[in-house]
Write a protein that binds this DNA or RNA. Structure first.
Lengths: 215, 215
DNA sequence: CCTACCGATCGGTAGG
DNA sequence: CCTACCGATCGGTAGG
């Protein structure tokens, strides 16, 4: 080798492939899978219209790869953020903030792509489902831990699904230049789960019973 | 008139137009706007491929009309359900259940269509935004009322957005034949908001402080 | 990774 | 609302 510009073991095409993947993910999120043409993707990375098919067999294949690699990157970030956080409540807060980062901060916003799964065939959809199940399992474990410690009313799946709803819906309204920061959203969501949305001023009784008539 | 089959004031084409609208909404939700062809819609109502354009100027126009009429129907259902429910907490419960109905029970699942707004031009998007704002205002009013009565920690917009997230995400996972009924989901979401997700067994202190080290 | 290209499909229209 | 049709675009491929 004369000018040692490529590291050993890094195939020369890996960079372009990664670039395609990241660009495709971004465009799929922005415009949707069907509204994004393979020509859009090629142009965005400076290729000709036929060239993406040198790296990927089909447009569906591009979507599948983008989703899987994005989900795995998010999974690694989640694991890394959890490491060493012993208190499950504090860990849940960290996980919520990390998930919002995966959703809204990373350059490809992978969790928002899950919506496009319907464009894939059953086989590919099953692979996606396996990757998201692994991601969900980390959450369920921490929720279970909190429930065991008596710090959650229940760890049944409705709670986890409602939590993911709260967070993922952010993709519909969050703007980086908006009023709320990701830290603030994360705090609001964690507070809602861990402390409840009610103010319990001093020594209030159960808030359930209906009053006869308000004064 | 020999057989008085059409009521006065109901244009003969209204039924077909409505059928197109409902069918289009259903297909748009199922497959997405871009993946649904105008031929799909025509075939589903037993028309030829060019005929939908007799009722609607363009495919976008069909989407816009489906969204607006669906949102207004949902708005009417919401108002009707609220009427006469004086206690704001009970009213919120009713609203949550009604919204889940709009989302998952009605035959066109309009709230899920909002996701397809990006396929519309700016003018149409503004009309949709106006309709959803009206829908949201009803919620904000009840949340404000609860906050004023000291039964919510805050009625700031994060709470409303988190609430809609919880509910709307149901479109991603709810199945009519699944384990959870809409009543159960509605109850879980309302409990989370109105009572919090934490069990506060007897006289527990603030759950915030971090323990030194767990035993 | 490019050039050149194909078959299929799609939104939409004219004219009745 | 149908028939017949058009122009444009799109995913994908052959061959280098």
């Amino acid at each position: 080798m004369t000018a040692g510009r490529k590291r050993q073991g890094a195939p020369p095409e890996a960079n372009r492939r990664d670039e395609l993947l990241r660009t495709a993910a971004r465009l799929f999120v922005e415009k949707g899978f069907d509204a994004t043409t393979t020509r859009d993707i090629a142009e965005a990375v400076g290729m000709r219209s036929g060239s993406p098919f040198y790296h990927f067999r089909s447009k569906q294949d591009l979507l599948k790869a983008a989703m899987i690699e994005g989900l795995e990157a998010g999974y690694r970030r989640l694991q890394a953020a959890c490491t060493g956080v012993g208190d499950p409540a504090q860990r849940l807060r960290v996980m919520i903030r990390t998930h919002l980062g995966n959703l809204l901060e990373s350059d490809c916003h992978t969790p928002m792509l899950i919506y496009e799964s319907r464009s894939l065939d059953a086989t590919a959809r099953a692979e996606i489902a396996a990757a998201t199940d692994r991601y969900q399992a980390v959450w369920q474990a921490t929720l279970d831990e909190l429930a065991t410690l008596g710090r959650l009313r229940s760890s049944a799946s409705p709670l986890r699904l409602l939590l993911f709803g709260m967070l993922n819906w952010g993709g519909q309204w969050y703007r980086p230049d908006g009023r709320l920061s990701l830290d603030e959203i994360a705090e609001a969501a964690a507070d809602l789960l861990l402390e409840g949305a009610i103010a319990r001023p001093a020594g209030a009784a159960a808030p359930a019973g209906k009053r006869e008539t308000p004064p």
